[in-house]
């Protein structure tokens, strides 16, 4: 077993692009689920809308990427309004069903043959649509630090990505300790009480949905730019569920929860995967039990199992304290 290699891979994943994408997605979910108590199961839809808006506008319509980013934010706002207007007045589970359905609609429309000329069908859109972005790259040589190797473009994406994470974490920190944040957290505890104190709950929930959705769109931007392609099946409900796993791992309603969660999630995921791969390759795990192909499947099983166990035994996340757990049980 090459433990050095395993750790190198796991560490690279923990600070890599996927960790950034899921940190951003989970920061948005944290706003929805952690602070406001909104059950958004369509975060993948917000990522898809962000990613596809940029790819379609730049590749098919030759729009400047900066304008495309703005349009991507706009699309996320529109999506949030479309989701929120019918459901935010209803019971929480309606939002869950409508968001998960909408995310699926977005994915299936994006992969449909009929709209292939716009969205590229199931292959998605590939093309050099990040040129304007990469032209600003101040790192012409990339990075080669110990085992971490980044091409210039990758390094630029990772640096900008983490900068975005820092910015959104800071914004979350600022806004959640304001009176606005107080109203939001109060809504999570009991909507009717907040209404009885003269606050327009619907309005606040809508703002939260929009805010978290826009952060999701940014996760989509990073997804699209880093891969230089968008593919519909990357934006399936599994993405949303992974983002929930990330959020709950790091701790919902904690400012740094999504970031810690994402780093640990990707570290563990790749760690386990590499250990299994090597174990299979070195016949430590016999072939009848697991083939190299099955390693990826075991990974998914572990995510599901982890999500269950976390929610049952540590719903406050791995950093949370017992005090809050006691509160959860009562709520």
């Amino acid at each position: 077993m090459d433990w050095t290699f395993i750790f190198q891979q796991a560490i690279s994943a923990g600070i890599g692009v996927n960790a950034i994408i899921f940190a951003l997605a989970a920061i948005g979910l944290n706003m929805h689920f952690g602070y406001t108590g909104l059950l958004n199961f369509g975060q993948a839809g917000f990522l898809a809308v962000g990613a596809y808006t940029v790819a379609v506008l730049v590749v098919n319509f030759d729009v400047s990427i900066w304008l495309a980013f703005l349009a991507g934010i706009g699309s996320a706002v529109v999506l949030a309004l479309l989701l929120g207007i019918p459901t935010l007045r209803l019971r929480a589970d309606y939002l869950a069903i409508v968001t998960i359905a909408t995310a699926e609609i977005i994915r299936q429309v994006a992969r449909s043959v009929s709209l292939r000329e716009y969205f590229g069908g199931s292959d998605g859109i590939t093309g050099k649509f990040g040129k304007d972005f990469f032209d600003l790259n101040p790192f012409p040589n990339g990075l080669s630090l110990a085992f971490l190797r980044y091409t210039p473009n990758d390094l630029w994406v990772v640096v900008v990505g983490w900068a975005l994470v820092v910015i959104f974490v800071f914004l979350t920190f600022l806004i959640m300790r304001s009176p606005w944040g107080r109203v939001i957290k109060a809504i999570r505890e009991d909507e009717e009480a907040v209404r009885s104190l003269g606050k327009n709950v619907y309005f606040y929930k809508m703002q939260s949905l929009i805010l978290g959705g826009v952060v999701g769109a940014f996760a989509g931007f990073v997804y699209a730019i880093s891969r230089q392609s968008v593919q519909p099946d990357n934006y399936s409900t599994a993405l949303t569920f992974f983002a929930y796993a990330v959020l709950i791992l790091g701790g919902a309603a904690r400012v740094l929860g999504p970031v810690a969660g994402s780093i640990i999630f990707w570290f563990l995921l790749v760690f386990v995967e590499q250990v299994l791969r090597q174990a299979v390759a070195n016949d430590l795990i016999p072939n009848w039990l697991m083939t190299p192909n099955q390693v990826g499947q075991v990974r998914f099983m572990l995510v599901g199992l982890g999500l269950m166990l976390l929610m049952i035994y540590r719903p406050q996340g791995i950093f949370g304290d017992k005090k809050e757990l006691a509160l959860d049980a009562r709520a």
Binding site: L174, I175, S178, P179, W180, G181, R182, V183, K185, A186, R188, E189, D190, A193, V194, L197, G198, K199, Q207, L211, A253, E324, L327, R330, A331
Partner: peptide
Amino acid sequence: LFRLSVMDNMRLGAKNQIGEGILRA
């Protein structure tokens, strides 16, 4: 509101707070 402090419960009641607007927050 269980997971808010008693003081935050109270502050929430104040009407028309400036900081309840999303931008000024």
